[in-house]
C-alpha cells in the first residue's frame, strides 16, 4: 500500500466509526477513563444526579444564578498522552440546562508511546434541553498523536452552543498529528459532519488549501429551534494572513456555524467571540 493510501485508511479507521464497535485496543500503559455528567430538570431547576470524575477529569459543580447547572472539568493529571483512551459522556435530559467548561487548555502530548490517544466526547440533549459546551482550546504539542471525536445527539427542540478550538503546536513548534471529527445529529438526522486532520503525515495539511500557515482553527455551533430561518452569511475579516472567519446557516436551518482560522489562539478567540455576537443578534 502506498504511503498516501496508508494515511487515508488509518484516518478512516480511527474516527470513521463513532459507534464504539471497532475501538482500537489502546496502549497497555495508557489511561482509560470515562467521566459522566447527567443533568435533569426537577420541575424547578436543573440538578446533577450523576457527576462521575475519572482519570484526568475531575468534575466540579459550579455556582450559577438561575435554574441552570454548571460543571467545570479540572485536569487531574496530564492527558491525553499517547495510548490513552478518554471519554466524556454528557447527558442533558428533557428541559434541563447545563453548561460545561474546562479550567485549562487540554494539552495533547506524546507520552510513553507514539500510539494515538483517543478522546471521545459524547453529548446528548433531550427535548427543550439546553447545553453549552465551552471547553478551553485543545493544544496539539509536537510529536503528540490524538484522535478526537465529538458526537452530539440533539432532540428536535434541544438547544446547543458548542465551541471547539484547536491550537497546532505550542509557541513556535510543529504540531503533533491531530485528527478530529465533529458529528452532530438532530432528531436522528445528520446536521453537521466534519473531520479535520493536521500535522505530519497528513498530505498538504499546511498548504494553501488547508491551514496556509495558520496555527489556530475553531468552530462555534449554535443550534436553536426558535431561531429565525433566514440568515445571511457574515464574513469576518477577509484577508487570509491575519485570520478570517465566516458565520453561516447550516442546510437544516435554525443552526449557525462559525468557522475560523487564525495565526494565534487569541485572534481565533476574538473571531469566534465576534461571530457569536453576530449570531445572538440574529
Amino acid at each position: 500500500m502506498s504511503h498516501a493510501a496508508q494515511i487515508v485508511d488509518d484516518r478512516a479507521a480511527s474516527t470513521g466509526s463513532l459507534s464504539g464497535a471497532e475501538e482500537p485496543a489502546g496502549h497497555p500503559h495508557g489511561v482509560r477513563a470515562t467521566a459522566r455528567i447527567r443533568a435533569t430538570y426537577n420541575g424547578r431547576a436543573t440538578t446533577l444526579p450523576q457527576l462521575r470524575s475519572d482519570g484526568p477529569f475531575h468534575l466540579r459543580r459550579m455556582r450559577t444564578d438561575g435554574n441552570s447547572a454548571k460543571v467545570g472539568i479540572i485536569g487531574a493529571m496530564s492527558a491525553p498522552l499517547g495510548g490513552d483512551r478518554l471519554t466524556i459522556d454528557v447527558t442533558v435530559e428533557d428541559r434541563a440546562l447545563l453548561e460545561v467548561t474546562t479550567a485549562a487548555a487540554t494539552l495533547a502530548l506524546r507520552g510513553p508511546t507514539a500510539a494515538p490517544a483517543t478522546y471521545d466526547v459524547r453529548l446528548t440533549a433531550g427535548e427543550h434541553a439546553g447545553l453549552r459546551w465551552l471547553p478551553r482550546p485543545l493544544i496539539s504539542a509536537a510529536d503528540s498523536n490524538l484522535r478526537q471525536t465529538c458526537h452530539v445527539e440533539l432532540a428536535s427542540t434541544a438547544r446547543l452552543l458548542l465551541r471547539e478550538e484547536q491550537i497546532l503546536g505550542r509557541a513556535n513548534e510543529d504540531p503533533g498529528h491531530l485528527v478530529s471529527r465533529l458529528l452532530v445529529h438532530r432528531a436522528g438526522r445528520p446536521l453537521l459532519d466534519q473531520q479535520t486532520a493536521y500535522g505530519n503525515p497528513e498530505p498538504g495539511w499546511d498548504g494553501p488549501a488547508r491551514l496556509h500557515g495558520h496555527r489556530a482553527v475553531g468552530q462555534l455551533l449554535l443550534v436553536d429551534p426558535k431561531m429565525g430561518t433566514r440568515h445571511d452569511p457574515v464574513l469576518l475579516r477577509t484577508g487570509s494572513r491575519d485570520g478570517c472567519a465566516v458565520l453561516t446557516p447550516l442546510a437544516d436551518g435554525r443552526a449557525l456555524l462559525a468557522t475560523a482560522v487564525a495565526p494565534t489562539s487569541s485572534v481565533l478567540r476574538e473571531l469566534l467571540d465576534e461571530a457569536l455576537a453576530h449570531a445572538l443578534r440574529g
Binding site: L183, R210, V261
Partner: peptide, 21 residues
C-alpha cells in the same frame, strides 16, 4: 451514512463563502 468520509478544510469553506461575495 456516518461511515462516509467527512474530511473538510475550514479554510476552503471560508474562502468559498468570501468568493461568492
Amino acid at each position: 451514512v456516518d461511515a462516509l468520509p467527512s474530511a473538510s478544510s475550514p479554510l476552503l469553506d471560508i474562502i468559498g463563502e468570501q468568493h461568492a461575495a
